[in-house]
């Protein structure tokens, strides 16, 4: 795996992910200490991407559990494959009636049938969902539990149990112990406060918007066809917009989208018209767009005045 923090940085870079030294340090710690990472920060700063890059860099499978309101254990952990069980019941009908057939009484028949039931409630008919897949995998995986703040508190409590015991109990089968321990990334957009217990267990990583330099590197790497000077202008504008108190600040994802859009329209430089035409790629609210136009053109006028 990783032998040093520099290893982490270059491994992630190999997956087109630019990690700050802080991010690389925390990933390294997570590997060495076997602890989950809780990553918080604004939308689109690369929380999800980090897990993908981590999995990619270590050759592990990435298993993702997207959280939402109402997500429950059965969807996260396992389901019984009813259709398959059904099919087997049909196919084995003769065999079953044979077993039951020799019975003298109804009670006896039921007992015999019960004797066979673990055929139907075995791993064979268990459909593992992300969490079970992650801990039952033969090789360790990266488990991304995305947007945990959207799940209900019960689910968080349940998750906490799994993350501390690395085992689950399936009533029909008993306790299933983890074969391997996954590397876990939990992300949160901080729409609600998470429990202290969960935070205590995890390494905490706050990912903020990247510095101008990092963001420029991201754009250059992800959109190599954009001319360097336009890329620089783009990033400068985005960084400036983040300083305004907008309804929704542009994320890194949006900077990248913008850069791609500029390549698509073959923009050589970012003149007023191009800017006006493409601003909707990075800003989603009409009021934000108006505001940005005012600020950016005022900035221009000042620049001109100085010259």
């Amino acid at each position: 795996m990783f032998n040093s923090i520099a290893d982490v940085t270059s491994g992630l870079l190999g997956q087109q992910y630019i990690a700050s030294d802080e991010i690389a340090t925390v990933v390294y710690l997570a590997e060495k200490m076997g602890k989950p990472i809780l990553a918080e920060g604004p939308a689109g700063v690369g929380k999800t991407e980090l897990s993908k890059a981590w999995a990619g860099a270590t050759g592990r499978e990435l298993i993702r559990l997207q959280c939402y309101e109402g997500l429950d254990e059965s969807k996260a952990l396992y389901e019984w494959e009813y259709a398959k069980q059904m099919l087997y019941t049909q196919l084995l009908r003769d065999k079953l009636s044979q077993i039951v057939g020799e019975a003298q009484t109804l009670g006896q028949a039921a007992d015999r049938l019960a004797g066979e039931e673990n055929v139907f409630f075995s791993m064979r008919f268990l459909l593992p969902r992300p969490l079970l897949r992650a801990i039952m995998s033969d090789k360790p995986v990266v488990l991304l539990i995305d947007e945990i703040d959207r799940a209900d508190a019960e689910f968080e409590a349940f998750l906490l149990e799994i993350l501390s015991d690395f085992q689950v109990s399936v009533p029909e089968l008993g306790t299933l112990k983890a074969r391997t321990q996954p590397m876990v990334v939990l992300t949160s957009n901080n729409t609600r406060e998470l429990s202290e217990a969960l935070k205590r267990r995890a390494l905490y990583l706050f990912i903020d918007y990247p510095s101008l330099e990092s963001e420029l590197n991201i754009v250059r790497m992800r959109v190599p066809d954009l001319s360097p000077s336009v890329a620089k202008q783009c990033v400068e504008i985005v960084q400036r917009l983040r300083g305004l108190d907008l309804k929704k600040s542009p994320s890194v994802a949006e900077t990248v989208d913008w850069a791609k859009a500029l390549v698509a329209i073959n923009a050589r430089h970012l003149d007023d018209k191009t800017l006006n035409d493409t601003l909707t790629v990075i800003l989603k609210h009409e009021s934000d767009i108006q505001r940005a136009r005012r600020v950016l053109s005022a900035g221009k006028a000042r620049d001109v005045g100085v010259r």
Binding site: D21, T25, K199
Partner: peptide, 29 residues
């Protein structure tokens, strides 16, 4: 955890040492 993290990271690089403490001790922005 913070002590274990320091064991892993060491104390030579001050920024990393600091980040190791931060990740294990500080859970709220």
């Amino acid at each position: 955890d913070s002590l274990k993290a320091v064991e892993v990271i060491g104390v030579l690089d001050r920024d990393r040492f600091k980040n190791a403490l931060k990740a294990t001790l500080i859970k709220e922005p």
